[in-house]
Design a protein around this nucleic acid. Structure first.
Length: 469
DNA sequence: AATACCCGTGCC
DNA sequence: GGCACGGGTATT
């Protein structure tokens, strides 16, 4: 057994900020994005203080040192670009606002990886200089995807990458990291194959493969790769997004003046990272979570009236969109509930209300005792189950909650796609009835001016999502 | 001197 | 073996 080492003359070790919340990255990011998006523009000094307070409030952080919390604050900003400062104020980035508005972590990781590259504003200027001196111009997600794409061609569809290969053959080898136009991908792929043929192993110790491994993990979170026991394969239902990555030849323009101005560098970087968001180049196709391959996916697509394997009656909404998907699932849930309880006569009363009516709820429904229900559906998309306990109600929704009282319901639906290839999509539903009453009884918090709801003593009622059989 | 990514080290 | 705390250390 030989250990493959990157040849010394090609070796250049790249690094990025190691998040100190890897196992909980989705929860932390959605928490921070919600805070900064809600604050908007704020004087930097006040913002820093507020952010430290909020990070201390994050579950498990009460006893952390001030130094550690400062590290959280700055590293979240540096790596994920959720906010940036000018000389006086701190602003939320577009990537944070988009996450806050759409509650879609899968999409968030696509945007993050689409732009994440070297050189970039996520590391210190002296590190950037070293990277420039070595002529590195490297978008790791793009390069990993291209390599797997090439391996697929070479191996008749059986293309995958391991963390060791990603690190030692790509991430730390300048033949890959200086390969701006992907001219060497074929050679890199062949090298990986010859290493496999020669049964080479890789040094997997601790931090060595940490950085490249993180990128592969983020690619899984963004639904572009599937992890089959340490072998990372392209997700066949995400062809369109993968092709966008392969075609992405935009690199960060590191102007000379940025070398002496770290704040400006950070600002330009966050702008650059957010730019694809303003062009809205990614959207999450929830149906893609339910299929294992393209064939299954196109079958699901054909049955546009249905979601999952079940025959949920459709509201007629476009089921590919997350918000519409959530409404559709809840519509099906309500109808099924009536059917199970032999009140099929009431099903025609269940209706989705188009958004432009702005009534402050998504679905009007009815219970078996003919008690009217007005339901606002809040949908999130993530890989792991979120413990996130904050959500936002608009002015209309708050108004409806106030006037409709016990008839008003919030259905919080989590679409959880999993992070292993064998994982099946799970739906998790929590129901909150009459939020204003819960607020008056001090069981939940509602900031009436911003509409932010925080679940505290009361976390909502767990309900099994019903599917039409 | 303070700040903020960097990263050694110990813990699970 | 992977991960995160909090000190390390280069930069502001």
């Amino acid at each position: 057994m030989k250990i493959y080492k990157t040849p010394a003359k090609y070796y250049f070790r790249l690094h990025h900020v190691r998040p100190r919340f890897k196992n909980n990255v989705e929860n932390v990011i959605i928490y921070v994005a919600s805070i900064v998006a809600k604050i908007g523009k704020m004087e930097s000094e006040n913002f820093r203080e507020l952010m430290l307070t909020k990070l201390k409030e994050f579950p498990g952080n009460v006893n952390l040192e001030g130094k550690t919390l400062q590290n959280w604050r700055t590293e979240i900003a540096a790596l994920f670009g959720l906010y940036f400062e000018d000389s006086k104020f701190t602003f939320p980035s577009l990537i944070a606002i988009d996450l806050y508005e759409n509650q879609d972590l899968t999409k968030f990781f696509k945007y993050f990886l689409y732009s994440f590259q070297y050189p970039g504003g996520h590391i210190k200027i002296n590190e950037v200089k070293k990277i420039m001196e070595n002529k590195i111009c490297f978008n790791p997600a793009r390069y990993f995807l291209s390599t797997i794409y090439e391996l697929e061609k070479l191996e008749r569809g059986n293309g995958y990458l391991t963390k060791g290969e990603a690190c030692h053959v790509i991430f730390n080898d300048v033949r890959a990291t200086t390969d701006k136009d992907l001219k060497n991908v074929k050679k890199i792929a062949s090298l990986i194959l010859s290493n496999r043929k020669n049964k080479c192993t890789y040094d997997l110790a601790g931090d060595t493969i940490r950085y490249a491994g993180d990128i592969l993990d983020y690619l899984v979170l963004s639904n572009l790769l599937k992890d089959f026991g340490g072998k990372f394969f392209l997700n066949k239902t995400e062809r369109k997004s993968i092709l966008k990555f392969l075609k992405n030849d935009t690199y960060f323009n590191l102007k000379e003046e940025l070398f002496s101005n770290s704040r400006k560098l950070e600002e330009e970087w966050v702008k650059f990272v957010s730019e694809p968001i303003s062009r809205k180049i990614f959207a999450t196709d929830v149906l893609a979570f339910f299929a294992q391959d393209e064939k299954e996916y196109s079958e699901i697509l054909k049955r546009t009236n249905y979601v999952i394997e079940s025959d949920i009656p459709s509201s007629g909404a476009r089921t590919k969109d997350i918000g519409d998907f959530g409404e559709n699932v809840i519509y099906g849930h309500e109808c099924t509930y009536l059917k199970i309880n032999r009140r099929e006569d009431l099903i025609s009363i269940v209706k989705c209300i188009p958004n432009h009516f702005a009534v402050g709820y998504d679905i009007q429904s009815i219970d078996i005792n003919e008690f009217k229900k007005y339901i606002e559906v809040k949908t999130t998309v993530s890989s792991k189950k979120l413990t996130f306990n904050k959500f936002h109600l608009t002015k209309n929704e708050l108004g409806s909650a106030q006037t409709l009282k016990e008839n008003y319901f919030i259905y919080r639906l989590q679409v959880i796609k999993g992070d292993k290839a064998e994982d099946k999509v799970k739906l998790n539903l929590r129901v909150i009835n009459n939020p204003i009453e819960l607020y008056k009884r001090d069981l939940i918090d509602i900031d009436l001016s911003s509409g932010e709801v925080t679940l505290r003593k009361y976390q909502g009622e767990d309900v099994e999502v019903l599917t039409w059989k």
